[in-house]
Amino acid sequence: MEYVIHLAILICIYLILAQAFNLNFGIGYQFNLAHVASYSIGAYTTALLSTELEQGFIVCIIASTLLSALFAVLLGGIATRLKADYFAIGTLAFSFVVSALLINWKSLTRGVLGITGIPRPIIFGRELNENLDFLILIFAFVLLVQVFLYFIFRSPYARSLKAQAEFEHAAMSLAKNAGLVRNLSFLIASGLAGLAGSFFAYYINYIDPSSFSLTEMIFVLTIIVVGKPGSFWGVIAGTVFLVLLPEPLRFIDIPPSILGHMRQLLYALILFSVVWFNKANLFPVQRGV
């Protein structure tokens, strides 16, 4: 039972992370490789605030969300001026700057040792040490975030985001401010990634830079690609499927040193084969005039 609750919590965390990325990448077609960097900023903010400054749950999640969003605005100022290849390189560089800081700024982040002993949140005077209690808390937030994003996905804003992705000049000729629309999607997605990071730090109690590597980014990317970019329910189904997929590997007799790489390989092969079979209609090429 404990194991099922653990998986459910993981699914909840990734639902926030992946659905936020779906707004940015699935609808806006922005190949934002810094999404996991925003996630790590959120996780470290929560970890530091709750251990060093002993702040409560509400302060931590709000600070994590806002700080990630702030970094997104800084990055967005550079990155959303760029197109395609340049955008991918710029965001990748940003994510490596963040991970270099996490590893090397030892006085703040304790480097590769990571931050331990993050306390569980206290809600109405009750410390959520039981995983079931934590699941209920995170489920409430997931519901909130998904409803929020569901309405965003159906709003005029999402339509203009999609329009600028498919044909920027046409969108601009209809008086859509493409740069602003892109920046806003960046802001929302990164803020929600920070929220997911906050819950990750609270749940695992221990974070280190290796949890936020490029492998994690590829996992989130796989969720979006498997679930069909831009599809709300598809990404939810994709998250549940991909989090549960490697679990049977636990019950096969595989040495633990290989297990992690088996998962990596599995996700990469799934990512590649989904792209291979849907190459014509996964990311529509820009529509001609």
Binding site: L265, L269, V275, L282
Partner: peptide
């Protein structure tokens, strides 16, 4: 097709190599 596809596939390739 779209330029995004080759980003995704080469990222997958890099993971496979590693």
């Amino acid at each position: 097709y779209s330029y995004v596809l080759s980003f995704v596939t080469t990222l997958a390739l890099s993971t496979i190599f590693e």
